[in-house]
């Protein structure tokens, strides 16, 4: 018997107490927890809460407007002193208007990991943000690029639009496509492995900066 058959038949034997007629849906799953929605998605309160929670987790946060976002992107990168930042395909042209072209690194053709390792930072959009937990979600869509882009460089600047902000985890998951590789980012990476002292940034970007539009 194959291991597969063996394990499956062990499971069936182990579940002798479960009647043959019982279907999975017959086991009740009460979902009386909150579906979210407070504050409403895209609202000012939601954006404000997101800003607070991100800051709580050590991210630098700025509220900007559609008019000031390009300047804010350019300034953030200038302040970081980055000589070259990766800008993934699909990142809005108007948002990178303030960036000197020679500072922009494209991932098409695909950068090698070592090239990526030499980049100073990356600027991306996001797929969604969760206010209640201070979380950004990336799904590799336009302006986000593949996962390695937001992992290897030491600085990540993320631009989020108000309408992408939801209050809760359930609302975010409902908006996301599970078939795409997803990364949920809540602040810079961190460890307390040395004498319980918190150190921000081990392997992921040590600095996470977020621009919230609206």
């Amino acid at each position: 018997m194959s291991a597969r058959e063996d394990v499956l038949s062990r499971i069936r034997r182990a579940l002798a107490d479960v009647g043959d007629t019982e279907a999975p849906a017959d086991v009740p799953v009460p979902r009386h927890y909150s579906p979210g929605g407070t504050p409403p998605a895209g609202s000012q309160e939601a954006v404000k809460l997101l800003a607070e929670r991100l800051a709580d987790y050590g991210a630098a946060v700025q509220r900007v407007t559609a008019e000031t976002v390009a300047t804010a992107v350019a300034r953030a990168i200038a302040v970081r002193g980055g000589d070259c930042v990766v800008v993934p395909r699909g990142f809005p042209r108007e948002w990178q208007a303030g960036l000197a072209p020679e500072r922009v690194l494209s991932d098409a053709p695909r950068l090698s990991v070592h090239e990526l390792d030499r980049a100073d930072g990356v600027v991306t959009t996001a797929a969604a943000a969760i206010a209640g937990t201070g979380t950004l979600v990336l799904d590799g869509g336009p302006g986000q690029g593949r996962r390695a882009l937001t992992l290897v460089p030491d600085y990540h600047l993320c631009v989020v639009r108000a309408e992408q902000v939801v209050a809760s985890v359930p609302e975010a998951l409902a908006r996301l496509d599970p078939l795409r590789p997803l990364t949920f980012v809540s602040g810079p990476s961190a460890t307390s492995d040395i004498e319980l002292d918190r150190v921000e940034g081990v392997h992921g970007p040590r600095t996470l900066e977020v621009l919230l539009i609206g």
Binding site: Y57, G132, P178, P181, L182, F184, S186, S189
Partner: peptide
């Protein structure tokens, strides 16, 4: 934590 710094999900290969 309200959420840990990183959660990754993947489905097969992309």
């Amino acid at each position: 934590e309200r959420m840990n710094p990183y959660t990754s999900t993947w489905t097969g290969t992309a």
